[in-house]
Structure formats: structure tokens, C-alpha cells
């Protein structure tokens, strides 16, 4: 029997592309895969990974401020963590997304995964992370449970205010200024009326106004990020 050695018909370009695909695009991390599964969108999961205020530098800065807050609380007895946490979270939210903050903002406007979804997912992630950091810091600083949980509602309102400011003005700095100013006015007004700095986080009658501010700001954000219908 004669054996004929014919050259194999191999598409080398295709082989190379297959190899390159494996080398250049390694599988996403388990965390990214989990987020992609939860959000039902691998694109949104990747969009979370590049959130500016979820980057290591931001997290380190937030931790440093909260650690300083813990030390100040221990030294003075005033729950500075509760007063700092909403402001930190507001800055993180304002810097989560938008023109001038996200380098690829213009491109993201032309993608099927809507920028409102990206904004929402990033804002929730930043809020959740800051809330967790703030709660840990409050627990470590040993302040009363009422104070520890009391700032979560005002933090939501301040974050919503910062987000609305940033979205309407299309400027993260305006968002931060709005959030900081709103929170400073609330804290100082609380002190002027009751004589204590913690009034803004311990007065239960403020919960409804905080929720009203949150709802109003969310409505503004939804309006500002509505998809333009365009002329027909």
C-alpha cells in the first residue's frame, strides 16, 4: 500500500486569529463574570470595572478620610464619621460617570447599552461601597447605633443631590459642590437649631424631607438622561 503525503489545507490566518483571540482576550475574572450574570450584560459588568470612583486611588482616599474620621471621633466624641460619610459618597457618585469624567463618554452615547443604565449601575455600586465603608467606620468608632444607621438616609439624599447636579450641569465638580453645599447647610442648620452637630443624622423628623429630596433629585436625573426621541 502506498502512502501519499499530501499537504494539509490549513487556513493559517484563521488559526492565528484563534490563537490571538485566546491570548489577547483572557476570560474575565470570576467577579466580573458574576456581575455580568447578575446584570445580564457582560458589557455593563465591564463598564463597572472602569468606573473612575471605584478605582484603587479613590478607595484609598475614601478609607484615609474615614480612618481620620474614626480617630477624630475617638478623640472628641463627635461622630465625625457620620458627618463625613455622606460627603465622601456624594463625591464618588458625582465622579462616577459623565462628560469630562468618563474618557469614552462620547462613544458610549452611540452604544446599544444605554448610558442611563451605565450611570445607574455605577451610581449604585459606588453608593453601596461607600455605605459599606461608612458602616464599618462607624462601627469601629463605636458611636451609637442611631447615629451609625442615621446617616444612611441623609447620605442617600446627598448622593442624589450630587448626582442631579452633575447630570444637569454635565459637570462632576458642580455635582460635588451641590452635594457638599447641601450637606454643609443641613449640618450647620441642625447645629444652629439644636446646638449639636449630629442633629442632621439623629433627628427623625428629617427623614421625610431627605426622602423628598432624594425622590426629586432622582426624577431630575431621569429627566436629564432621558433618551432624546429625535425628529421623526
Amino acid at each position: 500500500m502506498t502512502e501519499v503525503n499530501e499537504p494539509l489545507d490549513v487556513d493559517l490566518d484563521r488559526v492565528w486569529t484563534g490563537v490571538a483571540a485566546r491570548v489577547w482576550c483572557p476570560a474575565p475574572s470570576p467577579a466580573e463574570r458574576l456581575v455580568g450574570w447578575l446584570l445580564r450584560s457582560p458589557g455593563l459588568a465591564r463598564a463597572l470595572v472602569v468606573t473612575p470612583s471605584l478605582m484603587l486611588g479613590w478607595l484609598v482616599a475614601s478609607c484615609v478620610v474615614l480612618i481620620a474620621g474614626i480617630a477624630a471621633t475617638a478623640g472628641t466624641g463627635t461622630p465625625y464619621v457620620a458627618l463625613l460619610a455622606p460627603a465622601i459618597a456624594a463625591a464618588g457618585i458625582a465622579y462616577a460617570y459623565g462628560p469630562g469624567i468618563d474618557p469614552a463618554w462620547e462613544l458610549s452615547q452611540s452604544l446599544p447599552v444605554s448610558d442611563r443604565m451605565v450611570l445607574l449601575v455605577r451610581a449604585l455600586a459606588v453608593f453601596g461601597l461607600n455605605a459599606a465603608l461608612g458602616l464599618i467606620a462607624s462601627a469601629v468608632s463605636g458611636v451609637a447605633v442611631a447615629v451609625t444607621f442615621g446617616w444612611l438616609v441623609p447620605m442617600t439624599a446627598v448622593c442624589a443631590l450630587a448626582l442631579a447636579g452633575a447630570t444637569l450641569a454635565r459637570s462632576a465638580n458642580v455635582g460635588v459642590a451641590a452635594g457638599m453645599a447641601g450637606w454643609a447647610i443641613t449640618v450647620l442648620a441642625g447645629r444652629a437649631l439644636t446646638g449639636t452637630f449630629t442633629a442632621a443624622v439623629t433627628t427623625s423628623s428629617l427623614v421625610l424631607p431627605y426622602l423628598a429630596v432624594t425622590a426629586g433629585c432622582v426624577a431630575l436625573v431621569l429627566y436629564a438622561t432621558r433618551v432624546p426621541g429625535g425628529a421623526r
Binding site: 450584560s41 457582560p42 458589557g43 465591564r46 463598564a47 462613544l107 458610549s108 452604544l111 446599544p112 447599552v113
Partner: peptide, 9 residues
């Protein structure tokens, strides 16, 4: 490039 491929659904 992969990021935008994913965001393009």
C-alpha cells in the same frame, strides 16, 4: 476594543 465589543451587545 473588547470593552466596546461587549457594550455593542
Amino acid at each position: 476594543v473588547e470593552y466596546f465589543a461587549l457594550l455593542k451587545d
